[in-house]
Amino acid sequence: MLRDMTLGQYYPANSVIHRLDPRVKLAGTLVFIISLFAFRSAEAYVAATLALVAVIRISKVPPKFMMRGLKSIIMLLMITVVFNLFLIRGTVVVRIWKLTITKEGIETAVFMAIRLIYLIVGSSIMTLTTTPNNLTDGLEKALRPLNKIRVPVHDIAMMMSIALRFIPILMEETDKIMKAQMARGADFESGNLIQRAKNMVPLLVPLFISAFRRANDLAMAMEARGYRGGEGRTKMKPLVYAHRDRMAYLVMLAYLLVMFGANRIGFAARIFGLS
């Protein structure tokens, strides 16, 4: 059922990661992702793993919630691994019929898999510890300089947070309309592609109408509560860097340095033939 899908996947807990400024978390995620692609030695990955495990522990979010995000990319992961495994040439380790698995293939496949998994887990930490509104607030403030080149940052952020609020409602609505049409003998599962697309009309038309009706109501409710765009608006929860946020930036810097160092060790080791 559609209702089982969770989009805003915030996991409430009382941790320092939860309390961090969303801009710090955005920056941290970015730093982590960049580090995964910039540094590729085994030593650097050990450092990255340690950092990741540490952050997960501090965040108090059960690891199984992190893993949930992986489910959606499992196919992509398999394809990546299989391609790398069989298509990269080099020292042959195993030969199955016409396919060969090489040492380099295994290495690349493992690295690619780790990179993808860390990427997803890393960004899940951000979404799991930050409320969607907080996240859009962070984006709004981080991107504020774009206002100067006439990007309507406030409006985009407002749209994003409204979308986040209404996605679960519209999902439930989809479920309801689908059932209501099925009660009238609708069939959303069989038939060829064109037939199926046609069968969706009784679902999509009411859904669109409902979305417009809701948008209309919401716009009126917002106006009634004095909304007139971002100008002159204050924030109930303004983003102000606290001591912990500055510390977090330092931790990020330290992490980058460690990664850099670890990478150099790995690099040096390879050059001197120690590996």
Partner: peptide
């Protein structure tokens, strides 16, 4: 009720009006 709540958290929604009024946090 669904079409007039703007915030994704109860307190954020209640703060929406005063925010529009430009009140200090």
């Amino acid at each position: 009720p669904d079409n007039q709540i703007i915030g994704t958290i109860v307190d954020e929604d209640v703060g929406f009006g005063p925010e529009n009024m430009g009140m200090p946090s």
